[in-house]
Amino acid sequence: MSLPDFQVLRPRTNAEAVELLARHAGDIRIIAGGTDLVPSMRQKLFTPKFVLDIRAIAELNGIRESAAGLSIGAMTTLAAIERHPAIRKNYSVLREATITVASPVIRNMATLGGNICLDTRCLWYNQSLAWRKSCGFCIKKDGNLCHVAPGGTKCWAAFSADTPPALLCLGAQLEILSPQGVRIVPLQDLYSGAGEAPLKLASTDLLAAIHLPAASSGLHGAYKKLRIRGSIDYPLAGVAVTFRNGAGNPTANSIMKDVRVAITAVNPAPLLVREAAKQLEGKPFGEATAELAGELAGELAAKSARPLTTSALTPEYRKEMVRVLAKRALLSLA
């Protein structure tokens, strides 16, 4: 399959990129690593007149440490993130989520900004134009019916990126540029929860950087993912867990503080499971008590998961695996 016709614009600076986005608003798509957009354009899911290639903008790339925390340029590749010593040491949950994304070669291309802005996925959507034409268009593209949801009036395509649950746990903030200037947005406010339009971003917005606050540095964290193959696949369910304790490594009598649990790939948006954070806060955590904490986290995480038949494996299994993965994530930290 070939790509639809478009012009490629290659700005060198953020200012130039914002200007081009404003000039062609509504008829332009940003391409970063290309691993999500290019296959989608081949399937004619996007047919923009202009493609804004931001690979040549140096100021969008790189990881900077400061007293406020860590600032990651949106164009930083996932491979660079998994190798960065400060991320390995202080934000380990992000590294753990990053190394599960697709395959090593795809992580050489894919960017953190791209992973955060990943389009939602569904068996009825991520198909060629010929397939969609013969099997029926859906709400997300060209049609007005959802084939997987009861009633069929709302799009339930699943948000299927691995790094956002880890970033939600870390309290990540986004730096977004637009003709109106710079704004800082908490990551959870980026997601609309609607499958057909998952991101609250205007077509004139450019995601420039992701900030990890210093307050989240050194959290214990783990990410567990369900997929069919051990490599390449998108998640079919994913759970990230982070917390802090006063005594360094988790010990028999440590107390869980600043607990966060986040899930992905089972809803149209990645979600913080606030009830799990609330109920686990202050609970003891160690070899003897991790099992109990894991059960509780799993039960509450699974309650927030609403998977439908948008991907391989049954929704029941994926929901059950959210429970299992949350428990496994906590047990791996005991």
């Binding site: 290309g34 290019v38 296959p39 040549a56």
Partner: peptide, 19 residues
């Protein structure tokens, strides 16, 4: 379709030639 770009393996089917 893997090729190396500046020595780093990447998928040539997801890269635009102009980029």
């Amino acid at each position: 379709c893997t090729v190396q770009i500046d020595g780093v393996p990447m998928l040539s089917c997801a890269l635009l030639a102009v980029s």
